[in-house]
Design a protein around this nucleic acid. Sequence first.
DNA 1: GTCTATACTCTGATAGAC
DNA 2: GTCTATCAGAGTATAGAC
Lengths: 201, 201
Amino acid sequence: MPRPKTRIQLRNSETILEAALDVFSSQGFRGATLDQIAEVAGLSKPNLLYYFPSKEAIHQTLLTRLLHTWLDPLREMDATGDPVAEVMGYMRRKLELSRNYPRESRLFAIEILQGAPRMREAIEGELTALVAEKAVVLRQWMDEGRIARLDPVHLVFSIWALTQHYADFDVQVRTVLGEGHDPYAEAGAFLETLYTRLLAP
Amino acid sequence: MPRPKTRIQLRNSETILEAALDVFSSQGFRGATLDQIAEVAGLSKPNLLYYFPSKEAIHQTLLTRLLHTWLDPLREMDATGDPVAEVMGYMRRKLELSRNYPRESRLFAIEILQGAPRMREAIEGELTALVAEKAVVLRQWMDEGRIARLDPVHLVFSIWALTQHYADFDVQVRTVLGEGHDPYAEAGAFLETLYTRLLAP
DNA sequence: GTCTATACTCTGATAGAC
DNA sequence: GTCTATCAGAGTATAGAC
């Protein structure tokens, strides 16, 4: 039943995807088992395979959905806005994404780490195109002297690296910080300072 | 044969670990199979299990070795040196580590991403202690006005995130950059600028 | 639509010959 | 020390009852 029609089908599909996100993001594709997903979803294993043709299909559905969520913050960076504010806004939106969707961040990270076997197409297409488009905008701002001259693509990489770190390495971050810290609040303040200093013309 | 004695035993153990690093770092613990490791190592599967008691033991050996390599660059940061030069030096050594040991970086990343099930102890102990020790040094430098006042732990996180990104997300980095780029050379230049601006008092 | 039962494959580990 | 053969368990997927 690849295309759910009824309300129940839709709800069950969502329940499965929600459970699958939980398991795939913490165990990776091969580490995850249908048993685990079924348990989290509160459904039987064959029932999972009634809604999705295979484990692979569940995973693929998650990845496809993820890509849009993931690229939206960059897409919103506006060429007509104030340059520093736009880059800072992008950084903030990306950090919020890490805070609010850490499982999605880890799902994405595991996929890329393992060589993007199920996402290569999207990375070569949509993602690369978007970065290229925004690099033009950034370079324009640099040419106008409105932000510091930097490699625009590596500037984007730095935002990815610094924000996703807090979701992907959550265990390490919380362990090193110890009790009584709000990692994302502190990260927000730190990154605010970092990019203020970096971007100043 | 947990403790290799002869030269042949030592060489075979190393061959196995080398192959295992290849496979574990690109497939994760569960994604990796003994068959794959055996194939890469050019040995038979039972022969692997003659040298190591289990798949788990191979993995554990890799992780244990890894930790020291991983922490050395930070350990070398010298409290008596020039502050800016010391932080920059640490960043450079860490980037070199990503360039020269990308598989180790990915092995570490996958482990943390999945909640550090086999490394929690080391993170809670050795790693946290080292960061705490170096945070004192950094804070001292800040108090003396020799580098900018920043959260020292998040400063360390930023170095981890920005350098490891190039190893862990290698596929994405190379795809987005396209042909004819040297990611690490460009990263080096970018990070040099970033930390020069960030650390200036 | 959902369940029980099961087929079939993969994989970690062992036995035993050489 | 290394190999062939094989076991036992886990895991994906399907058959078929209800």
